[in-house]
Every structure is written in C-alpha cells, then in structure tokens.
Nucleic acid binder design. Structure first.
Length: 1116
RNA sequence: AGUCCCGUAGCUCAGCUGGUUAGAGCACUACACUGAUAAUGUAGGGGUCGGCAGUUCAAAUCUGCCCGGGACUACCA
C-alpha cells in the first residue's frame, strides 16, 4: 500500500485496456458529465457516421479531434454532453442492399415489395454498429452511445417534417424543374453520387455535327449581309438528337467572331458562316485563305476569306431559322403554354460558359437537355422543347424520327442511330458543315451500362438563395479552423449559392411530407404526426361531403412507420373534394444530418429546454469534404429556421493519406486498418502521433513508423521519468505528506522547471482555446523531452538517490511530482489513457487530488508568479555554456569524468554575469569543472566582433545598408572600443559620413586568444585544459567509482545494499585512494575500503588504462 | 474550369507581422557516457526553402504567373 507502481516495460495497448475497463466500471465518462451538472455547457454536435461501412483510420483522426476538445473543456469545468448519432438513410444503404439481394431498382415494387426492401435497408444500415462501437471504446472516444439519435426513427423524421413545414410556411419550399442526369434505360434520375461510381464515365465515339443555322436577314443582322449569299451560324454538338429541340444559340460576349466566305463542303453551295475567330484554324486550312473562290464536291481545297470580325455582344438577339422544323416543334413550351418557336427562341443569347476550346464558339442550346442550356432559357425567357420522352425515344410529330430511340436502349440489332440519320439529313439539306466521329468521355448509367441523358425532372427545392446574404453575414461570426476554409471554400460556395434540390426518387429515406392534388392546384405540407392525424380526420368529413369512399381507420394504421410504402398509402381529401396523394420523393439525406440540432432532441415535440440549452453548438469537427455537405446544411437550416449560426467553432480536418501521400483505398491495398493499428501501437500513441504530426487541416501522411517514434520519444521518455520518480520515491517513502515547500526555498533548478511548467500550462491552454492542438502537443513533448528529462532529471539525479531525506530531497520530489501530475492533465485530452494511468499512479499514493480520474480533475491553474523569464533565460545560458564546454572537451578528447580547473567566459555586461553566476553551480557540476572565471573587457584579452543590427539600421540607412553592414563587420578592436566608449562612431559610407549608434550594432566576443574557444550566437566559452596531478587523482577516483558502480550493478546488488571493498596496492592508484577514500566509500555505499598488498581471486578493472585488482562484496 | 489547401534536409515537420550563417526530430556516420540504460550526450555529412518574375537596401517570408500533389464544386456544347 501507498507505494507508487513501478513498471518493467511500457506496454501501451494493455495499459489502455486496463484503463478502459476502469472507465467502464467506475462510469468515469458518465461522471465527467454528471459532476459538471449546473456548470456552463459546452455544446458539441456529433456528425453522424453511417454504420453500413467499416470505420477507417481517418475516423480515428476525426474523432480524436472531437474527443480532445470535449475532454479539454470538461477539464476546464464545462459540462460537455455528447450525444452520438447514426446516419441511416440514403443511397449507399440502398446500393448495398441491392447488391446483397442481387436486384436492381426496377425490381423494387416488383420482385420485392417496397416494404420488404425498406425492412432490408433497416437491417443493413447498422450492420457494422458493433465494429464502430468497438472502435469508439478502443480509441478512447467518449460519446454517449447509449442514447444515440438515429435518423430513421419516427421521432427524428417527425422533426424533419416540422422543419420542412417551417420552410414551407415561410415560402422557402417550392417545386421546380431542373435538368438532371437521367437514365432512360432504367427510367430513373441519377444522383451525382451515382455518376461518380467508378467506370461511369466512359470514352465513347459519337457522331458529331457542326450544323448551319441560317440567319434571318433583318435590321439587327443586316451588317452580316452584303450579297445574296446566305449567312449561317456554325454550332457544334456531340448529341445531334438534341438538335430538333434547339431553342437558341449561345455566344460569348467578349469572344471575337468572324464572318467567313466559303462553300458548304458537302453541297458546294456558296455560303458565309460565322464562328469564333480563334477556331477558324480548326475548320479551314490556312493554305487556302483568300484562294480563288471556286469549289467542287469531293475537292479538298476549300477556299475561304474573312469578311469581317466582331464581338459576340454584337450578335445578341440575331434571329435564325429553325434548323429541323417538325410538327411537334412549331410551338415551344413556355410557362405552361405553347408559343410559336420564333416568339420564344430562334435567337442568339450571351452566356459566360462559352469557350473557344472546342466546337465553334457558338453553342447549340436545348434547354431540356443541358443545365447550362436550361439556365440560359430561364435567364432570357426562352421556351423549351422536349422532343424525347422518358423512355428515351422521340415523341410523335418529329417526322421520320418519331418513335426512334435516341440511343440503343433496347439492344436492337438493327438499331439505326438518329444521330447519324439527322446528320445525313442535314448534309443533304445544306445544313451540315462538318460531320465527324468524335471520342469523348460520357456518363453512363452504372446499372444498365447505357448512356445517360440530361433530362428535365420535377423536384422540390429549398430556396436557400433567399437567405444568401444572411448566410454570408452569419458565416463571418463562425470561427473556422483553418480560416481559409470558411472565407474561401465555404464563403465562395455561399456567394455562388444555388437552391437546394431536396428531391430524391428513392425508397429508403425521409419521405417528403407533401400531399398534392393531381392537377397540382392544392398542396398540403404536414409538420407533425398530430397534424397528419387531423388531416385524416378532416379528410373523412370532406369525403363524406363529396361522397368519396375514405376509410380513416385503415389509413391511420399506416402511421406506425413514417417510411414508404406506408406513408404512400395515406391519401387525403381536401375541402374542395380533391384527392391529395403524397409526392413520392424522398428528402436528400443531407437534410437529415443538417437538421440534427433539432431532430436529435425530437424538438419541438419534446425537450424544448434541452434544445434551448444546446443550440447553437460551440464546437463541431468533421473532414474538409463536409464543407459543402454537413457544414452547409447545418448552416443553411439554422439560418432559415432561426436566423442563427448552427455552430460557433468548426474544425475541418484534412485527409489521412498513406505514407507516400496517396489516397487510401481498398483497391490499392494501401488502407490502414484502425483495429490492428490500435492493437499494436495503442490508441494514445496513435492519437498523439496524429495530433502532433501535422495540423488537423493539413493532410496527414500516415506512417506507422511515426507512431513508433512517438512511442519511443514521448511516451518512452515520460514513462522513464515516472519510473525514475517511482523507484526513488518508494525508497524514501515520499508520499507527499509534507507541507509544500515554498518555491523560494527550493533550489534554482526547481524554480526553473516550475517556471517552465507554468509557461507550458499557459501555452497549452491558449493553444487549445484557439483550437490549435498540434502546437499544444508539440510544446508538451518538448517540455518532457528537452527540459524535464534531459535537463531537470539528469541534473537532479543525485538529489534523489543520495543521502538523507532532507528538505532539498523533498523539494526535488515535490517538484518532479508536480511536473508529472501537471503533464498528466495537459496531455489528457490528446492521450487519455496514459494520462489517466499516470495521474492515478501518482494520486493513489499522494491523494492530493480529489478526483478519481484525470478526466474529472480540474485543469491546472497558471501561477503567473512562478513564471520567471529571467530564470528561464539563465537556464538557457547554462545549457548553452554546458553544451559548449562539452563540445570543447570532445574536441581535445578529455572525458567528462576528468575534472578540470576552470572555464572562462567573456562578459560584456553586468546583467549577463549575474545571470551566469546564478547558475554557476549547475554548469560546474554538469561539465565537471571547478571554477568559472569572468573576463571583462578591461583586461583586454577578448577579441570582439561587431555586427550590424539589420532591422534598426536598415530602416535608417535604406540603400546604404549593405555597404554599412560590410564596414561594420570588419571593425577593428580600436573602432569597437571607440564605439563602446562614445556610444557612437562615424563611418564613411560612399563618401558620406554616417553616425552609427551603439544600439544599432551588436558586439560579441569572438575569441580569447591562446585558449580553446567555442561560440554559440553571442556566447563565448574558453576551457582550461591543464590537468594537474590533483585533478588526475580526482579523475581516477571518479573513474574507479564508475567501475565499482558497474560491478555493483552486474553483481545484482540492490541500490541500497552496503558493500565491503578491498583493493590491491598499485602505484597508480595509491595516492588517489589515499586522498579520495571518503568520496569513494560514500559513492558506492561502502563501510570501509581496504588497501592490501596482494589480492587473489580478485576482479580486474581498467581505470584510465591501468588494471586494478578489486574484490567487492555485499556486506552481511 | 473554378475555389481552397499543401510543396523547406533522404523522411516528418518548425520558421513565414520581411532582417544577419534557414532550424528540430527521425534516419545515417563517428565518438563518448552508463544505478533513467531497448535511455542519453557530442560531433559530422545532408538544403537552387517547387520554378520564374516583381516589390524592397534586404524575400523561405509579400505580390503575380507557372509547375507538382490533394480536396471540393461544376461542366464537358
């Protein structure tokens, strides 16, 4: 009892296992929240992971960041609730279910009912929940797994409905029409996610055409006509099947276009054409520019001539004739009515997306089949033509093309491509300028392998653009780490904000709570289950009134699960007697997670107070890939619903790459399994490595060797330091029962390490407050390695293992104990297991702290009075001087055990001398030298050197700086003396006298002629290397002690065992033993030392190259 | 294509409100130390600070352009 645990080796994984068990048994996590009851909350939101995939090493990274700030704030006294969550809806779940069942989307509702399908999804979605929970425990991520929010639960969905209803009531939810990737073969729209499946973009050869659009000669276009020759726009397309649906031509306003005189290559008819000047070379051979104007079909030499050149702007509004007029495109659709083509299209418009990289610089625009095209139609009030139906075939009334599939969707062996047929037709009609095969990347439906087309589909949108300005304002008060993600990536995204397309035509997700009449005239948005019940009730009455059959009882039974298909079975009857059916779309899963601040509490149906206390979040953290995902949806919903930010601080962390900087992927086999990593290296070393190696927002090149290094350098050193303390504290029975020895009564070195320790606490606290964990970890590591272990413990070793239990010894124990305990608190957020073990090993004996775990303890308070910068400075001087002396010893090959008489240090000011004198004893014992002699300038033995202070002089001298620096660098001793005496000196710079002040120059002592000298910055040290007989004897004595200590150790003696020593007389050693007998005995714990004439059965050891015979025995 | 991040020793990273000879750890080599010892100390080699321009007396640091790696968003007529 009451002894510090001592360890034989450092085994992080088993240590963590043990600490983890302790946390569970003693409910430490629960206590970390319950003991902060009533304290200021620090609100954290957990971004819900999807448990239908295995966690990866990058999840350890992300969660380490989340965990460390939550733990830190707990230590700072805040109450930090952490509700966990699971993201359960969405495409990935559906895809894996389909894969498992071997079905496709078309089979749903046919081979398998929606009910069974969704039941399968529900089972699938938490498939890896166990693995996730295991990882959570293993890595020490504290989050409340017992009460997670789960996005598929009815309560969660009900809150989403509430949120949607809020938006609906504010007029922020509307139905619109957009162009989306659509697979006619599968009969379904595709998400961008689906298009990004591997292999969807494929290189295909398509028939392309540069079509000629004949310009109408009118007031606007007359500048293009000067004879009877017809003038055409040239426009290129890779999808000729969209040409019958052409509505407009788009040109770039600032792009230069030329009117070119030439012939149609297929008909040899003389024509004038317009295309971008920069692209003329693509269609015309420069050899035939201005050639004689005649041409025959089949000839290669196509003559051409530029008639004029103008800007795209000049073409705006010019009209052209419909390229392929049919019955069905005489009129076009515009605002639900039919308008003649010429009134709603057939003209040139300006678009900023036009480039001169390929094509002709004039873009064929078919609003139904391209999103740019669609945008242009909206902007210019153009109509649209959709001459292709959802099966992917031309509708009736497109002449010979009617009923043809635009791509070979039915695997018809005799299939003829309308692309080709249209090109042939155009050629014949003098409307094609160039037809060729073109190879390009085109998206394909990953399920059917058939080309996707872009097609207009109905969708519901959130009108985020309405709150664009407000969202940007609110973004300014969010503290982004790094800042650039907020101002750059996120800010930019907000500036170019589009409305949020909510609709997904899928099965497993939150159903849109919208019920619509068939004629679209009535829409009801439902905001709660109660409301839906009320609607069913009023529907019953409405139904009665209109004699419609309505069985409220059986309809209400579908309320038990708010998913499809049950919800689809609910229909309503409006006051006007219309049947309202649910819009079959689901809500984008990002809405699920963006609404988690409300839905996790089933707000506003329950927990109103809880929500109020937990909104907005103080802190969230996710990968930078969430910028336009979760970070956006949280922000958008908070702005729209509450005119508030959703989070005040956000850390967006980078990716975890493999050690070569490549993205980890299962396919490449370079992904790192988090479980084996944690098993082998431990969570603490892994977490410490991740946090200390690179800033969270930089990508981490994950290298297992780096974890090893952290384990050795940091944990190894800290463990050694603790073990050192434990071994001696147990011997001396130090249990911190004595009163605290006041700082001023402790030796300088104790004051120093305590000063550094307080500076450390301050820095680490500031770093954590600023969400800069990397600097915090590195600073802690530097303190432990450089200062505590390599200087404090090394210099103080003797204080621990020598002599009586004096006040000095107690001071040493108290100091080291305080350092270790404080370190345990500072490192606890990053490496929670080891920190807790360290804390408890110390505290179980001392019982100084009343917390049973470091994670329940209070963050150390900074004692500003203990911080002594002047002391820190002089200890730095001591370290530098010691290092210089050691390097001098090395240079002349005199080992440290050999004492030397003196070192000499030139002093240039009194303060410096005082600083050195204060740490003199430390230096002398560290470098084993008897005395320090200070050499002042008056003795004239120091060679000095002057150096310009660039910062000061540069501002003063400007251009002359370089010359001045050169002049000052070669100042002789007299000049320096003059400067020191008068505090200024005149120098000649390019024939101009300039006064240089003392303060503008640094003077350093460079050399003491005649001595061994070493320099570091302004510090200079000389070493007297004369070894007198006396020094030699002392050196021998110390060497002998060293050998004897080794014999003790090899002989397996305990540290405290007393010994008896016998040595055979030798000329070499006699004097030494005579003079240093007491010293030797004290060092090796010998009661007596016998010097005898002859020894048999003795051990022979070499002392400074002389063999000495020795018998060392344990005293009985 | 746009936006953002990153590029400093073989590797991982500091330094970047412009200022003197650009630092640390790891790795490598040599030597030393030895009651913290699978630790430690000292010394050494190793750099066009991604490239090119510009601003300036002075640029790793500020500006512009470019190259390479990565992320996201969009598009490919």
């Amino acid at each position: 009892m009451n002894a510090y645990n001592e360890y034989k080796s450092l085994d992080l994984p088993s240590l963590e296992n043990e600490v983890g068990k302790f946390w569970v048994q003693e409910k430490i996590f629960e206590k970390s929240i319950s003991t902060r009851e009533g304290k200021t909350p620090f609100v954290f939101y957990e971004g819900p992971p999807s448990a239908n995939g295995m966690p990866g090493i990058h999840h350890v990274m992300g969660r380490a960041i989340k965990d460390l700030f939550c733990r830190y704030k707990t230590q700072r006294g805040f109450q930090v609730n952490r509700k966990s969550g699971w993201d359960t809806h969405g495409l990935p779940v559906e895809l894996s279910v389909e894969k498992n069942l071997g079905i496709t989307k078309e089979d749903i509702g046919k081979k398998i009912s929606i009910e069974e399908y969704n039941a399968e999804c529900r089972r699938e979605v938490l498939k890896y929940q166990d693995a996730w929970e295991k990882l959570t425990h293993k890595m020490g991520y504290w989050v409340d797994l017992k009460n997670p929010y789960i996005t598929y639960e009815n309560n969660y969905i009900e809150t989403l409905w509430w949120a949607l209803k809020q938006l609906f009531d504010k007029g922020l939810l509307y139905e619109g029409y957009t162009i989306q990737p659509y697979s006619p073969a599968a009969g379904t729209g595709l998400s961008t996610h689906e298009l990004n499946q591997p292999g969807c973009y494929r290189l295909v050869k398509d028939t392309t055409v540069v079509a000629q659009f004949k310009i109408v000669n009118d007031e606007k276009s007359k500048f293009l006509f000067n004879d009877a020759v017809p003038v055409f726009f040239l426009a290129w397309t890779t999808t000729p099947w969209t040409l019958p649906s052409n509505i407009a031509l788009t040109v770039g306003g600032e792009i230069e276009y030329s009117l070119v005189q030439t012939f149609n290559p297929y008909t040899a008819i003389p024509i004038n054409v317009i295309l971008a000047k920069a692209l003329i070379g693509k269609y015309f051979d420069s050899n035939f520019e201005n050639a004689e104007m005649n041409f025959e079909v089949g000839k290669k030499e196509l003559p051409w001539k530029i008639i004029s050149t103008f800007n795209g702007k000049d073409l705006e509004g010019i009209r052209y004739e419909q390229l392929l007029p049919f019955d069905s495109n005489k009129n076009v659709d515009l605002n639900d009515s039919q308008i003649p083509f010429a009134d709603a299209g057939g003209k040139v418009v300006l678009g900023d997306f036009v480039t001169t990289e390929d094509g002709t610089g004039i873009v064929h625009t078919a609003p139904s089949f391209g999103s740019d095209d669609f945008r242009m139609a909206k902007k210019y009030g153009l109509g649209s033509l959709t001459l292709v139906d959802k099966q992917g075939k031309f509708i009736d009334g497109v002449g010979e093309f009617s009923g043809m599939y635009v791509k070979n969707y039915k695997d018809d062996a005799k299939y003829e491509s309308p692309d080709v047929l249209i090109c042939i037709k155009l050629k014949k009609e003098n409307k094609a300028f160039k037809v060729e095969k073109y190879e390009h990347n085109y998206p394909h439906c990953w399920r059917t392998d058939k080309p996707v087309i872009y097609y207009p589909l109905d969708s519901w949108f959130v009108k985020t653009t309405a709150a664009k300005e407000r969202m940007m304002q609110l973004n300014n008060i969010i503290n982004w780490k790094p800042e650039s993600t907020g101002t750059g990536r996120f800010g930019n995204w907000l500036e170019n904000l589009q409305d949020w397309n909510l609709s997904r035509s899928r099965f497993w997700g939150t159903p849109l709570p919208l019920w619509k009449s068939e004629d679209d005239s009535e829409v009801v948005c439902i905001g709660s289950i109660e409301e839906l019940k009320a609607q069913i009730k009023s529907s019953t009455e409405n139904a009665k009134q209109f004699n419609i059959e309505y069985d409220a009882q059986s309809i209400s039974e579908n309320l038990k699960d708010l998913h499809r298909p049950f919800i689809d079975r609910i229909f309503l009857i409006s006051k006007s007697g219309k049947k309202l059916s649910r819009t079959p779309d689901l809500v984008d899963v990002w809405f699920d997670s963006g609404a988690m601040p409300y839905a996790q509490w089933h707000f506003p149906f329950e927990n109103k107070d809880l929500f109020a206390k937990n909104f907005p979040a103080d802190f969230i953290a996710e990968g930078v890939d969430q910028t336009r995902g979760w970070f956006f949806t949280l922000h958008a919903l908070a702005t729209l619903l509450y005119d508030s930010v959703a989070y005040k601080n956000v850390v967006s962390n980078g990716l975890v790459l493999d050690k070569n900087g490549n993205k980890m992927s299962k396919r490449l086999g370079n992904s790192v399994d988090p479980f084996t990593t944690l098993d082998k290296y431990g969570a603490d070393a892994t977490r410490w490595y991740m946090i200390s190696n690179s800033q969270p927002w930089d990508n981490l090149k994950f290298d297992l060797a780096g974890i090893d290094e952290v384990k050795r350098k940091f944990f190894g050193t800290l463990y050694n330091t603790y073990n050192f303390f434990a071994v001696y504290a147990n011997i001396d029975k130090f249990i911190y029962k004595e009163d605290e020895i006041s700082l001023e009564k402790r030796p300088e070195i104790d004051q120093w390490i305590i000063s550094l320790l307080n500076s450390l606490v301050k820095t680490v606290q500031e770093d954590f407050d600023k969400y800069e964990p990397t600097h915090a970890a590195r600073t802690i590591q530097e303190f432990v390695d450089e200062h505590l272990s390599n200087w404090y413990v090394r210099l103080c070793r003797r204080r621990f293992w020598k002599g009586e239990y004096t006040e000095d010894k107690i001071a040493a124990y108290q100091t080291l104990y305080t350092c270790l305990l404080t370190i345990s608190k500072l490192m606890a957020p990053v490496s929670p297991f080891f920190a807790d073990k360290l804390f408890r090993d110390l505290n179980l004996v001392s019982e100084k702290e009343n917390s049973e775990s470091v994670h329940l303890s209070q963050w150390p308070e900074v004692n500003e009075n203990a911080i002594d910068k002047s002391l820190e400075e002089r200890m730095q001087i001591a370290q530098d001087i010691s290092s210089l002396v050691l390097s001098l010893r090395k240079k002349v090959n005199i080992k440290v055990r050999q004492p030397l008489n003196k070192i000499m240090i030139p002093v240039l000011n009194e303060y410096f001398q005082l600083q050195v004198e204060a740490v003199k004893d430390l230096i002398l014992s560290e470098v084993n030298v008897k005395e320090i002699e200070f050499i002042t300038e008056t003795e004239g033995v120091i060679k000095k050197k002057a150096k310009a202070n660039f910062k000061l002089l540069g501002q003063k001298l400007g251009k002359k700086m370089k010359v001045a620096a050169d002049v000052i660098a070669v100042f002789n001793q007299n000049q320096i003396a003059e400067l020191e005496k008068n505090h200024s000196i005149q120098i000649n710079l390019e024939n101009e006298l300039v006064e240089i002040l003392m303060a503008e120059v640094e003077i350093i002592s460079e050399d003491i002629p005649g001595w061994q000298v070493a320099n570091k910055n302004e510090l200079t040290v000389a070493l007297d290397i004369t070894i007198t007989d006396e020094l030699q004897e002392e050196g021998n004595a110390r060497e002998l002690v060293n050998k004897l200590q080794k014999m003790r150790k090899d002989g397996g003696f305990n540290i405290t065992d007393q010994v008896e020593l016998t040595i055979e007389k030798q000329d070499f050693i006699n004097a030494t033993i005579l003079h240093f007998k007491n010293y030797i005995c004290a060092e090796i714990l010998a009661d007596d030392l016998q010097l005898v004439e002859q020894l048999s059965d003795a051990e022979v050891v070499e002392v400074n190259d002389f063999p000495i015979k020795i018998i060392l025995k344990q005293k009985k």
